[in-house]
Write a protein that binds this DNA or RNA. Sequence first.
DNA 1: GTCATGACGGATC
DNA 2: GGATCCGCCATGA
Length: 104
Amino acid sequence: MSFYDKVYAAARQIPAGKLSTYGQLALLCGSPRASRIVGAAMLHAPEGVPCHRVIYGDGTLCCDQAFGGKEIQRQMLEAEGIAFLPDGRADLRAHLWDGTGLEE
DNA sequence: GTCATGACGGATC
DNA sequence: GGATCCGCCATGA
């Protein structure tokens, strides 16, 4: 069980219609400052990991090459029920996953 | 064991 | 408010 596996496990806890940030997952993994590690793990994320629900703490999506285009990720999130602001960012403050609700 | 890197985050300019 | 810099932590060579 590497830190990466913890990240994947935490990411799978994110319910549809909810959003989470790298820092949030890092926190759940035990390292609030390892947000970068979470991102690196997302790159190697296997199937079953809704890495598209994991975005920046600011609500902005990652680089354009993330899912073949940030527009793709945005559509995926909209399909989940996520609302987007006119700024082009996701309504993170309204869909931010508390990290609780599934486990507990 | 050490050096460099990485889907980040917060602070500063 | 936006852009830039530094710091942090885990992984790979």
